[in-house]
Design a protein around this nucleic acid. Structure first.
Length: 140
DNA sequence: GCCAACGTTGGC
DNA sequence: GCCAACGTTGGC
């Protein structure tokens, strides 16, 4: 079981959109970066990911789970890109802002801090647990 | 609005 | 196959 972080601009696809997709979830489409793509290809059903709003908000607002492993991205006509399906697993009681992550020394090595442009990133178990605690998110 | 970091493109 | 030029992302 692995942990990830998925970035999206609110205007493109928001947490509310993710909630609307319900327990069956939907495609995490539109990723057109080779490294982000490689990360998605490595996702397994049941893996969890932070849902991060980039742009004006810059904060983690919730958790999604992988409900379908990589398959062709329906928004891609070239046939080169794949995506996974994710469903909302729960919202943070208190969203965790990028500024809080940067202020936490134990998170200094997070990919989010090191390579802010990567849209699909791995998260370590230690980072995952700590951020869940910061966000008031209870894992089952 | 700026710019650093990173990707992609295209000429050679 | 290299690399300069250009485009995009995303934080500040």
């Amino acid at each position: 079981m692995a942990y990830w972080l998925l970035k999206t601009e609110r205007s493109a696809f928001s947490w509310e959109d993710q909630l609307k997709a319900g327990p069956k979830g939907g495609e995490w489409s539109g990723v057109r970066n080779p490294l982000a793509q490689k990360n998605m290809m490595a996702m397994k059903i049941g893996d969890l990911g932070f849902f991060y709003h980039s742009g004006d908000e810059k904060r983690i607002v919730g958790v999604v789970k992988v409900v379908s492993e990589a398959h062709p991205d329906s928004t891609d006509r070239t046939g080169r890109w794949n995506c996974v399906d994710v469903a909302a697993a729960g919202a943070f009681q208190k969203p965790v802002a990028l500024s809080e992550i940067k202020a936490e020394p134990r998170l200094a090595n997070m990919v989010l801090v090191r390579n802010s442009r990567l849209s699909v990133q791995p998260v370590t178990e230690e980072e995952w647990m700590l951020i869940c605690r910061m966000g008031g998110y209870n894992q089952r």
